[in-house]
Computed example of a mutant assay.
Amino acid sequence: MKLNVVCLSCFFVCLAACKDNPKKIKSEQQRSDYEKTLDAMEKLQEKGLEDSAFQESKEYAKEMERTAIQASKKMNGMRENDKLLLEYETSLKILSACTSEANGHPELLKDLSFAEKLKMRTDRVREVYLKLKKTNLNPLEKRKFELLSGKK
């Protein structure tokens, strides 16, 4: 809950700060496009987890490749640290949605495909977190990372 409030606060501050700056607006549009692409990739992975025959198919491989290329294009022109922070923020949102779903329906935790999905999302957040910990971030990036991580 605290993370959601922090994210919403950051969003509104950024929105107010960039209202007259087209470059920043483009950046927000780029962020939104990337989040949608990553969400599509997550849904495709979920479908693959639920249907092993689909996961082994050429269609799955083709769709995953297409979605990965789209995600790469959406991040084109961004600095590496910005890419990592965006990836971390998006991964946290996806994990948060998954844990909220589990909190609302505890019986889901007994479902192996749901547990695998939750583990996959947790591993992704941990992976990006560790990359960011090793990255040389400027003070603004470091502050954003701390806010996203729930540190004061």
Rank of each mutant, 00 (worst) to 15 (best):
Q29I: 11
E63G: 01
L108V: 13
Q29T: 08
S72F: 01
A16G: 07
T37F: 03
S27D: 03
E50C: 07
K110E: 04
K74S: 06
N76F: 09
E127T: 08
G150C: 04
E141R: 04
D33F: 04
K134G: 11
L137A: 11
G77P: 02
S27I: 02
L95M: 09
L8C: 11
Y129W: 09
N81D: 12
A68V: 00
V5Y: 14
P139W: 06
Y34T: 11
I25W: 00
Q45H: 12
K117N: 03
E65A: 08
S27M: 02
T122M: 02
S27F: 02
A61C: 01
M78F: 09
Q45T: 10
E107T: 14
L8S: 10
H105S: 14
K93N: 15
P139V: 10
Q45G: 06
L148W: 04
K2A: 15
E87R: 07
E89A: 08
K58T: 10
V6P: 02
E42L: 13
L95C: 06
D39I: 15
E127F: 06
P106F: 14
G150A: 06
L108C: 14
S57D: 01
Q45A: 13
S100A: 11
M120N: 02
I25S: 01
S91G: 07
L92A: 03
A16I: 09
K58H: 09
K23N: 04
S96N: 15
K23Q: 10
D123L: 00
E65L: 07
L38H: 13
K142Q: 09
S57P: 05
M41L: 14
D20I: 14
T37H: 06
T122R: 01
L86F: 03
C18G: 13
K43W: 12
V5R: 15
K62R: 08
E28L: 07
T90L: 02
A71W: 09
M78S: 12
I94P: 05
E59F: 00
D39F: 15
C18T: 12
Y34D: 13
K144W: 07
L148N: 03
N81Q: 13
M78P: 02
E141N: 04
E50N: 14
E50D: 12
V128K: 01
L147W: 06
V6K: 08
S100L: 10
A40W: 10
S32K: 09
